[in-house]
Each structure stands twice: as structure tokens, then as C-alpha cells.
Simulated assay, not measured.
Amino acid sequence: MTRFPMTVAGEKRLREELEDLKTVQRPRVIEAIAEARAHGDLKENAEYHAAREQQGFIEGRIQELEGKLSTSQVIDITAIPKTGKVIFGTTIDLINLDTDAEVRYQIVGDDEADIKAGKISVSSPIARALIGKEEGDVVVVITPGGDVEYEIDQVHHI
């Protein structure tokens, strides 16, 4: 079975969402279905159909989260010795050598990736180019718009 890397914070967020779905959202939808059934004819009852659709979404999301959590490999970056190398979970300050623009990314699991928050997937082209490199190294990232060169300014093991 393939294990998918995930940070401790990512696992916590998924577990909290799963708990909310099971203890808050699911009972609320079950109550809404029961209330809609009490109104009579289910064939033309829009409230009933909307609640059933919501229930299907919730149950699907619960299964998805349980599957992700069962195949996850939680990596606690704070327990890994600091080597100065780029590894899963590290935060990297990069300098684009063409534009001198500075960016900061944290390498996280696929489900945690959020480019606006500076979190990139471990399977993204830039993360794959960075893994194993050290401060001062220059990496070439192959993008659809062409090759981009970055210098690794700092590696943070936060």
C-alpha cells in the first residue's frame, strides 16, 4: 500500500474536519431529512431532496477523509535532525535569479498544498527540484512557461 506524506498540522486539520462531519454535520442533515419527511409527499419536496443530496456529500467526504488518514504517513519535522537540506516539511526561502523576486514555500503533502499560503505539494515540480538540495544551491525548475532558476537562500526546519 502506498503511503502519502502529511505534516502533523495537516493530519490535525483533516481529523478536525472528520470529527465535525461526524458529530455536527451528519446529525444536522439527518434531522433535516426527518423534518422534511414529516411534511408529507417526498416526490415534490425540495427540502427533502436537498437534505438527501447534502447527506450524500457528507458521507462521501467522510469516506474520503477516512481513506486519506488511513493511508497517510505523518511526518513530524520537529523530530528530524536539522541538516540544512531541503526535505519534506521544511520551509525554503528562494530567490528567482531572473527577477530577483524572493518567495517562501513550505513543502507539504498533496492534500495540504495551498499556493496562496505558501504551501506547495511534495509532488509539485518545484518541490521535486528542491528536495535534497542545500542553502546556496541553484536549482532549475522546469515549468510550462520555461525553465526558472532559483537560488536557495535559507532552509527553515520549523
Rank of each mutant, 00 (worst) to 15 (best):
F4V: 05
P5H: 10
M6E: 12
M6G: 10
T7V: 13
T7A: 14
G10T: 10
E11D: 03
E11Q: 15
L14Q: 15
E16L: 14
E19M: 01
D20G: 07
D20M: 13
D20R: 15
L21M: 09
K22A: 01
K22T: 01
T23P: 01
V24K: 15
V24N: 15
Q25D: 08
P27H: 07
P27N: 03
R28M: 05
I30R: 14
I30V: 05
I33D: 08
I33Q: 10
I33A: 07
A36M: 08
A36S: 13
R37H: 12
H39R: 14
H39W: 02
G40H: 06
D41M: 07
D41S: 01
L42A: 09
L42Q: 11
E44W: 06
A46N: 11
E47K: 11
H49F: 04
E53V: 01
Q54I: 00
G56S: 13
G56K: 09
G56T: 08
F57E: 04
I58Q: 04
I58G: 03
G60Q: 09
G60Y: 11
G60F: 05
L65K: 06
L65I: 03
E66L: 04
E66C: 01
E66F: 06
G67L: 01
K68Q: 09
S72V: 02
S72T: 06
S72W: 08
Q73H: 05
D76A: 02
I80Y: 07
T83H: 03
V86A: 01
I87L: 14
I87W: 02
F88L: 03
G89Q: 12
G89T: 10
T91M: 10
I92V: 15
D93P: 01
I95K: 13
L97V: 11
T99M: 05
T99L: 06
A101L: 07
E102C: 00
E102P: 03
V108C: 03
G109R: 07
E112Q: 11
D114P: 00
D114Q: 04
I115K: 12
K116D: 10
G118S: 09
S121H: 04
S121W: 02
P125E: 06
A127V: 05
A129M: 02
L130N: 11
E134Q: 09
G136S: 09
G136I: 10
G136Y: 04
V138L: 02
V139S: 03
V140W: 01
V140M: 08
V141C: 03
V141I: 05
G145E: 13
G145M: 06
D147N: 15
D147H: 13
V148S: 00
E149S: 15
D153T: 01
V155Y: 12
V155Q: 09
H157R: 11
H157Y: 08
I158R: 15
